[in-house]
């Protein structure tokens, strides 16, 4: 078999996973796309190991290690996503903007005016935060 077949398939799978990581909103779907990218790497490792007849079987061994690492990663990732969901009430990655520089335009004011998109986002964030806070207060009361 030509090595080009598995190599091209791995490259395309990696790019599909890349699209998913960049385009998805739900954090669990982002994790799924990360799994796709890891699997593309695994396919590359196995194909090159078989093609070059490695005596140490390093490609396949490393593919096994990556599978175990991916299992650990998905466990920790899901725990983090569940914790975020419990604290914030959402698992959309573009709503978690607490560390974003939303008020940068107010201090400098030279280069970029605060565009309405950011302002709307900040307002939505504030609304979401107050909702989450009220939910938390409700839960604790």
């Amino acid at each position: 078999m030509h090595l080009a077949y598995p190599a091209v398939l791995a490259a395309l799978l990696f790019c599909v996973g890349l699209y998913g990581v960049l385009a998805r909103r739900n954090a669990i779907l982002v994790l799924m796309s990360v799994e796709l990218m890891l699997n593309a790497v695994n396919l590359n490792l196995v194909a090159f190991d078989v093609a070059f007849r490695d005596v140490l079987r390093s490609g396949q061994s490393f593919a096994l290690f990556i599978i175990a690492l991916a299992a650990a990663e998905i466990g920790i990732g899901l725990a983090i996503v569940l914790m975020v969901y419990r604290n914030r009430g959402t698992s959309a990655v573009d709503r978690l903007r607490d560390l974003a520089d939303t008020d940068a335009g107010g201090t400098g004011g030279a280069a970029d005016a605060p565009d309405p998109q950011d302002a709307a986002d900040a307002a939505a964030d504030a609304a979401g935060e107050s909702a989450a806070a009220s939910k938390k207060a409700e839960a604790t009361a």
Partner: peptide, 17 residues
């Protein structure tokens, strides 16, 4: 299900592919 930077993501993934 998709965020707003979907077309940017498509461009990046297409270029990488």
């Amino acid at each position: 299900a998709d965020s707003g930077n979907r077309w940017v993501a498509l461009g990046v993934a297409g270029a990488a592919a």
